[in-house]
Amino acid sequence: MIVGVLKETAEHERRVALTPEVTAQLVKQELEIWVEEGAGLGSNFPDAEYEESGAKIAESRDKVLSECDILLTIQTPDEADIKKLKKGAILICFLWALQHPELVELLKEQGITGMGMDAVPRISRAQNMDALSSMSSIAGYKSALIAANELDKYLPMMMTAAGTIPPAKTLVLGAGVAGLQAIATLRRLGAVVEAFDIRPEVKEQVESLGAKFVEVELGDDETQTEGGYAKELDKSKQELQREAIHKHARKSDIVITTALIPGRPAPILITEEMVKDMAPGSVIVDIASENGGNCELTEHGKTVEKYGVSIVGPYNLPSQLSLHASKLYSKNMVALLNLLLEDGKPNFNFEDEIIKNTTITHQGEVISPMLKE
């Protein structure tokens, strides 16, 4: 079995799908690893380290594509690359199939088995394969650092001869993996942190990190999916949510937004009116900007100033910590491969919940229950 690793070509993407450390593990399992020349340079893994781990460095991208049985990437390869894969090849990467039906059709037409790292189910047995959580943790950490850098104030309380400076007040919207990591990082930096989430189940986690949980009475409706994601609220509940957010955002120096709904644009949590009410010099870091943003005024890839408030819509936060992001993603990847491969060959056991949910297409058919629904 030849496992191919490509150099990522998407803008702002510096990660690599396999690190030399994990490559060595796969070589010991008698898999042949072909790595495109320079694939790891963006994450500070030179070709020499891959060669030492037992990989073959391929000078030609086309050779990796045409010869590999399994292709591992971060971002989805473009259409031209996918068409160079041989029929029956397996592509494992972030596919985001719900948002890209044309990609699903292409994979079916080409006879490619597509496995989405974004589709790994959030169950305890799949935790070591959960690349979304790995990358979200990095995004949450980095968002707090960006906010601290943009703010023209101290984050911790400072007692000086010239007087005492109170700590910065911060608000984190969404207490999933990214939000919890943002909370933890802001607390380490000394800020006072409040957090809001429509899921009351996360209150204990928020408080365990030393933050105050903002509670809103939303009734007894179910507020999260089976996978643990927040559900979209009806209009009356959205209004209650916005009122609470408005009240707390008004007095915050920093707001970090992390709310995403799988397969849908990011929900608007911060309206223009709320931004107008924030103090000049305040900062919003919108982690969800790639999916449209949680702030009505976010511009993806830019830092803009509106009504005296800096609004940051960052590109690809995990890629900004590319070395550790690659290490975590690579370990997620090898955990999935260890489940998929049996005696060195792929075994698509669709009785297994992880294989069934992660596999988007196989042998020209849609497998994913998420897509079928």
Rank of each mutant, 00 (worst) to 15 (best):
V16D: 05
P167H: 10
Y154T: 15
Q127N: 12
T164K: 08
L26D: 11
E365H: 09
Q320P: 00
K372R: 14
R15Q: 09
E207C: 09
G364P: 03
R187P: 10
A131D: 14
Q25V: 14
K153M: 14
L85R: 06
L340A: 08
I261Q: 10
L155Q: 10
S66C: 04
M274W: 03
F45S: 07
T271W: 07
E239I: 09
V120T: 08
T271G: 13
Y229A: 13
E217L: 02
M157K: 08
P369Y: 01
Q224F: 04
T271R: 05
M157P: 04
S330V: 06
C295V: 02
I82V: 13
A249V: 07
T225A: 10
L260R: 08
K306D: 07
V192R: 00
E272W: 02
N357I: 00
K7W: 06
A161R: 05
R188C: 11
E21V: 07
A279W: 01
S208A: 15
D286K: 05
L186S: 06
S236R: 09
V312C: 15
L341Y: 06
K7G: 10
T164S: 11
V285F: 03
L107D: 10
A55E: 12
M117E: 04
L71P: 05
T271E: 11
S319V: 04
T170E: 05
E365V: 08
P46T: 13
L72C: 08
Y50M: 13
D152N: 10
Y154I: 11
A335P: 04
D78M: 00
I367M: 11
D221Y: 01
L107T: 08
L339I: 05
I123P: 01
D81K: 04
H300L: 08
N128T: 15
A58R: 05
G190M: 10
T271I: 07
P166D: 13
N338D: 12
I33N: 06
D197R: 01
H246R: 15
Y154G: 06
S289F: 04
Q29C: 02
S322D: 12
Q363S: 14
W96P: 00
N357E: 13
L317T: 03
V255L: 05
E222C: 00
G116S: 14
Y154M: 15
E296C: 09
T303Y: 05
V312G: 11
T298E: 07
S326Y: 01
Y154C: 12
M370S: 12
V214P: 04
T113N: 11
T359N: 13
K142C: 06
